[in-house]
Design a protein around this nucleic acid. Structure first.
Lengths: 334, 334
DNA sequence: CTGAAAGCGCTAACAG
DNA sequence: CTGTTAGCGCTTTCAG
């Protein structure tokens, strides 16, 4: 900046004014400074200015998700990015892999970089360690999971409601014996889905203690085995509700291996790509992760803009997409 | 930091030393400082230190990809992140949407944030505008596309070679009339794939000027229409090579609409999820975007570590995955 | 409309 | 082993 000022023959503050589009600079001076800056290929150092600036905003937000490579997280990421871009704010994204140890490390890293806000999916049981940081002015927005021990804006999918919708859809198609297959039962989302599913069955007069309920499925292969065992049992279910992506795929594989894909109904939570091209197409409850990301970023900026209202809980609706597998009736094709 | 020093009863520099794990501090002093820092919930400001630090490294790299929501880019992102994490470096990722105007804006934004390195997929024709920045010390690594007007490390898929592999695979299965369907012909990757495909056919004695070649397909629906037109023509191809993801999906749809999925062979470039669950399974050339991301980050850090060697061109091999659709013989099932 | 002086939080260099 | 001084690049404040 010194060089630019020297070349343009003006003071430091004038260069600063021009480059920040501040008023009270004559057109001629602006041009001289701009030319000098262009000639030297000079660029303001955002962080240096931040040290002294009154608002002390680094124009950066941190995003912590399961994995940036996972389609759900990737869509959240994009939603956050799109909102941030309108505010000249950059996004640091980090992958957590559901590992509580990483959580501490990554959060600490991000805070050291002085992010204005942190949008995060947590895996730790308790988030009270973040209270101090929140009090210091860092905006916190939780996404996909409910935080504990701290009050902050939170954006989640309608897990309970959507799982109930799935159950009712299967009930309406005549099923009474429906199995639940879920992932890690420690996760808040998994618990909500199971609760919602069981609640809807109970409402239809089904004894939920007798509902085949298999949890803690963490990968496709394991889920395929678990579903297979269920299908091969003496009293197999006529319909399946798979509460997570990979579990759904495992279930599809198990059904196909037995040639049962047109006999046993299936509804999956979370959409999977090409689901409409399978035979039968897979009926799902599609979440809206892009929207979740946008809303999270919007809440973050609202707080940065001074919103001091009560913490908000925003529930983003999922959508039932009928494609065939969820509309199979009991006893079909046999 | 002042407060911590005061509370611990030591000088500023001692606090700095402790928090940066520098040597020459007594164990007792370390403890006093750590306690004080913990009590005040104090964290070093990474960027403030950067202003004065000798290496002037912000421990941040920028990544510019098509879209963080796209599976290919998301895998690259994860590869970059995994390497960066081992170097205590954070990653800014930004989506370009193949828009040259965005390119300028995003690059400028990232440079203002003083990223140590920039890993980027470019859409502009020419990257010579980045030479000055490169000379100033910003490390540049290009990914997925070949840069023009600048010399820098570049990581790409073996587009030419892999497209040739696809062509030869179809030839070996008896096809002589094979169509090429590609995306935006302006893109370097698309051109390479077409060249590689045509070259392999020419080598087999096929007149490439007569090969049905349809380019500039930008979405699934358009590709489906284009493929449909081809299949409905008087002399339809017996096999298709689709050089991009969405085009592959469009082709699958067109084939199914006509009940031809078991008659006409298909090989797609880039893997698609659930491809093995379709009927028939889709044979693809799977790229390795995660590896591309890792290699790009490794090159970036090698340069930051002082590597002054010639710019490297790293070609990451793709892998042919046979799943059925690419092994259909001409005239099958009719 | 413009510039000079002070200082943001930190680390390099050096002195003790 | 520890502390002091200077100054990174910028913006604030205030005086012209």
């Amino acid at each position: 900046m010194r060089d630019v000022a020297a070349l343009a023959g003006v003071g430091l503050k004038t260069v600063s004014r021009v480059l920040n589009d501040e008023p009270n600079v004559s057109a001629a001076t602006i041009k001289r400074v701009m030319d000098a800056a262009a000639r030297l290929d000079y660029r303001l150092n955002l962080y240096a200015g931040d040290l002294k600036r009154a608002d002390r905003r680094a124009r950066t937000i941190g995003l912590i998700v399961g994995s940036v490579a996972n389609p759900f997280s990737a869509a959240v990421n994009r939603g956050v990015e799109d909102v941030a871009a309108t505010r000249a704010t950059a996004v640091f994204a980090s992958s957590l892999d559901e590992d509580p140890k990483q959580e501490t490390r990554i959060i600490s890293e991000m805070l050291g970089r002085r992010v204005d806000a942190l949008i995060l999916t947590t895996v730790k049981r308790n988030q009270s360690h973040l209270v101090k940081e929140q009090e210091r002015g860092t905006v916190l927005v939780f996404v996909d999971r409910m935080p504990t021990g701290i009050a902050a804006d939170t954006i989640v999918t309608d897990n309970f409601e959507a799982a109930g919708t799935a159950a009712r859809h299967l009930l309406e198609h005549g099923h009474r014996r429906i199995a639940y297959l879920g992932d890690d039962a420690q996760l808040w989302t998994a618990q909500e889905r199971r609760r919602g599913f069981h609640a809807a069955l109970a409402e239809a007069g089904i004894d939920t203690s007798a509902v085949p309920t298999i949890e803690d499925q963490r990968d496709e292969a394991g889920a395929a085995v678990a579903v297979g065992r269920l299908l091969d049992s003496t009293n197999p279910p006529t319909a399946l509700f798979t509460a997570q992506n990979l579990v759904t795929i495992g279930a599809i594989r198990a059904l196909r291996d037995r040639g049962l894909q047109h006999q046993v109904a299936l509804i999956g939570f979370d959409d999977i790509s090409l689901a409409d091209m399978l035979e039968p197409g897979i009926t799902v409850l599609a979440q809206d992760p892009y929207r979740i990301g946008r809303l999270a970023a919007e809440r973050a900026f609202a707080r940065l803009d001074g919103d001091r209202g009560e913490p908000q809980l925003l529930v983003v609706p999922s959508r039932l997409i009928s494609r065939g597998s969820g509309e199979i009736r009991p006893g079909a094709g046999s």
